[in-house]
Simulated scan of single mutants.
Amino acid sequence: MRIAFLTWRDTTHPDGGGSEVFVEAVGRELARRGHHVTLLCARHPGSARREERDGVHLRRSGGRLTVYLRGLAWLVRHRREVDVVVDVVNGLPFASPLVRRRGVVALVHHVHAEQWRIIYPGLAGRIGWFVESRIVPLLYRARPFLTVSDASARDLAAIGVDPAAITVVRNGLALAPPEEVPSKAPAPRLAVLSRLVPHKQIEHAFVVLRRLEGELPDLHLDVIGDGWWHGELEAAAESEGVADRVTFHGHVSDVRRDELVGRAWLMVMPSVKEGWCLAITEAGAQGTPSVAYASAGGVTESIHDRETGRLVADLDEMVDVVRELLGDEVQRRALGVAARELAASLTWEACALRAEEVLRGAGAPGDQSP
């Protein structure tokens, strides 16, 4: 098949995250299976307009918003060269059904009700949520949807997407867990692996650190990742009085990422919403269990509560559970072992095979104009 992914960003974008990893990993596996894969996304400083990576042809054009118009224009120009389009709806859709009758699949990691309110707490957020919750179900009706968790599938059904049109394809893992569990730091250490954006609520990890400082004066937090909220988070760490016990590592290599989460005793994931949360799987591969909010959607599947990690109701319970696990090495190690086993069962190959079935069903060669 000739497959085109339309996505806001790629993994080299400063704001790239788990959604972009998913798209490129699936695209790479599809290319390895003989499909011609093109990924159209926005440009960013220092990026090339054209690039081939792991068999995927990257085409960068436009910016944060203009990439959507550029994507549609590209589809019109290349309509005879594409069998199926994967339209990545990351809050806003590319609206590819406007220029194609057939061969469209919508990929939604999660719906963004909370994010619209947090990032755009005014008219812009209300408009964004209206587009996502009202326009998307209408625009993509009768088209197949891919998503990464049962929780996201339920959220899509709640805004009007036909449940029969939704297929769940769970995230994979780039590298198998190491043969031996990495050595943990001698002193208690927490990690947050995330893009630095408001809806990840990383400030909650600073509160955990502050509330436990009297009992665990050596407790340290590693913040791994970067994003446009970095400055605000540094200020929040200062405000909570824990800046001297927080290290902001920024973007790091995969090797360094695994080293940092592998040394951590626990990962804290206070995000308000996740489709799956690849970071939890990546930490689990290093034998590090995670603590996350049960209300955050897909984390209820990337974490098996009390087996591979813990799910909590609110910040107070997060503090209590982190305290409990830091003081219970036996329980913590058992969770870490189970988290490694779960991570080892997840592969991008299996994810791509499932996605390929949906794409084959949607693909229709020939003229795709409306």
Results as ranks from 00 to 15, higher is better:
Leu221Trp: 00
Ala73Gln: 13
Glu20Leu: 08
Gly366Gln: 05
Val272Leu: 13
Pro365Glu: 14
Phe248Asn: 02
Thr11Asn: 10
Pro97Trp: 06
Trp276Ala: 04
Thr288His: 03
Leu266Arg: 00
Glu356His: 11
Pro14Met: 10
Gly336Arg: 00
Val37Met: 02
Val337Trp: 07
Ala187Pro: 00
Ser96Asn: 06
Ala95Arg: 02
Ala165His: 10
Ala151Asp: 09
Val76Ala: 12
Ala95Thr: 06
His204Gln: 12
Leu359His: 02
Ala344Asn: 07
Ile202Lys: 03
His230Val: 10
Arg77Cys: 07
Val192Leu: 09
Arg143Phe: 09
Ser61Ile: 13
His249Lys: 05
Glu232Leu: 10
Gly172Trp: 03
Cys277Pro: 04
Phe206Tyr: 10
Val105Ser: 06
Ala296Gln: 03
Pro93Ser: 06
Val312Arg: 07
Glu307Leu: 15
Arg101Ile: 08
Arg211Tyr: 06
Leu221Met: 07
Val76Ile: 14
Leu173Asn: 03
Glu357Asp: 14
Pro163Ala: 10
Arg80Tyr: 12
Val99Thr: 04
Ala362Trp: 01
Asp218His: 15
Arg263Phe: 01
Tyr68Gly: 10
Glu24Gln: 12
Glu20Pro: 04
Ser295Pro: 08
Ala4Asn: 09
Val84Arg: 01
Thr147Ala: 06
Ser290Ala: 15
Glu357Thr: 12
Arg117Lys: 13
Ala176Phe: 04
Asp258Cys: 10
Ala344Gln: 05
Val136Asn: 02
Arg257Ile: 03
Pro177Asp: 09
Gln286Trp: 00
Ser149Trp: 02
Pro217Ala: 11
Asp320Met: 14
Ser295Trp: 10
Glu24Gly: 06
Lys273Thr: 11
Ala294Lys: 12
Val21Asn: 13
Ser239His: 15
Gly71Thr: 03
Glu301Pro: 03
Ala48Asn: 12
Ala95Glu: 09
Leu359Ile: 10
Gly214Tyr: 10
Gly62Asn: 09
Glu114Leu: 14
Leu233Ala: 05
Thr66Val: 13
Val136Phe: 02
His44Lys: 05
His251Lys: 15
Ala236Tyr: 00
Glu317Pro: 02
Ile166Gly: 07
Ala334Gly: 14
Leu346Ile: 04
Arg126Thr: 11
Ile303Lys: 04
Val89Thr: 07
Ser47Ile: 08
Thr11Gly: 05
Thr66Asn: 12
Leu65Lys: 11
Thr281Gly: 07
Gly27Asp: 02
Leu209Glu: 00
Ser96Phe: 02
Asp155Phe: 00
Lys184Arg: 13
Ala42Lys: 12
Asp54Thr: 08
Val337Gly: 08
Ile3Arg: 01
Gly34Thr: 10
Ala113Trp: 14
Arg154Lys: 11
Ala235Tyr: 05
Ala339Asp: 01
Arg50Ser: 13
Thr147Cys: 14
His110Thr: 03
Ser133Tyr: 06
Leu69Ile: 14
Val291Thr: 03
Ala48Glu: 15
Glu240Cys: 11
Leu233Met: 08
Arg100Thr: 03
Arg257Ser: 06
Leu342Thr: 11
Glu180Arg: 13
Glu317Met: 08
Val246Tyr: 00
Val242Arg: 00
Val242Tyr: 01
Gly297Ser: 05
Gly71Leu: 01
Glu213Gly: 12
Ile3Tyr: 01
Val37Ser: 01
Gly71Gln: 02
Pro45Ala: 13
Thr167Pro: 09
Thr38Asn: 07
Leu98Ile: 11
Asp10Leu: 05
Gly18Trp: 00
Arg354Thr: 12
Arg126Phe: 05
Ala48Leu: 15
Glu341Met: 12
Val208Arg: 00
Arg2Gly: 05
Ala191Thr: 04
Gly361Met: 07
Gly27Arg: 00
